[in-house]
Amino acid sequence: MTEDPYRWLEAIANRREYIRNQLAGGSPVFAVSLAEGILLLGVGTGQSKVFEVFDRQALAGLGHPADLERIRQSIIDAAHLEGFTRAPEDVALRRLVGQGLGPQLKAAFEQIFAPPFLIRLLLAEVGPTPASDVLVKLGFDGSFTLHPGGVVVVADNPERESAIEAQLATALKNTSGVPNAARALLVAWHQLQSGPAAIADPASADLPTLLDALGERTVEAALLLRSHDRMARYAALDPARLGFPLRPSQHTAL
């Protein structure tokens, strides 16, 4: 099959379709640059969706938990080796993705006889100002896009992301603070999912209502603090209140 270019292209197309089908219905994840830092939020059913990577970096993703775990371990290994051999300040998301995860995922995607990675990822790196934040969308085929701050959504279907991102950008322009931002992200989550747990009018619902409507699902949220006296900036957020950071670095997952 591989000696025939057309069949190879067909196999790749089939592979892409297969992965998209597998990812359909996956719970979206969000990241938004705020004055306080970068807020990452996901809604899951027992499996963690938001993770600390290194001092200023974190990731969130959807897809197969085993694939997510392998990618997570891979980027944590790379970041710590870089931080140890050079300095923690030298660990950069652009390099981790552009020279590490991106090419590796692309190679894995094009190996049509091997099982693919069923994931879509969102990675974040906090900077000294919101404009210097780096947010990255990373696809299962290794394609990635860099965003200097703002708001980024990764859902099961890339076509649905742009509209929600534009809506969130407008909503977040008129609000401030982590709890309000978390509320806006939860509204967007409900709108993207609109499944049995969704509520009639999420846009006008308050935070407790939005949380109650999740049912068995749990919110997982973390803040990459913009400034802190420790190097590790990742702080998990209390899911019941979404605004009170737990102690940085002591709690990795809720």
């Binding site: 392998r70 990618i71 371990q73 891979s74 290994d77 710590h80 080796l81 140890f84 051999t85 090419p103 590796q104 995922l105 190679a107 894995a108 190996q111 006889f113 091997a114 990675f117």
Partner: peptide, 27 residues
């Protein structure tokens, strides 16, 4: 055909950074 992400080597202890350093000859 091998995958670009090789199966992680079986570490003596999970999460052992010194094993990771030795694996990359950086100890």
């Amino acid at each position: 055909m091998p995958r670009p992400f090789p199966p992680p080597p079986v570490p003596t202890v999970a999460g052992d950074f010194f094993a990771l350093l030795a694996q990359h000859q950086l100890a």
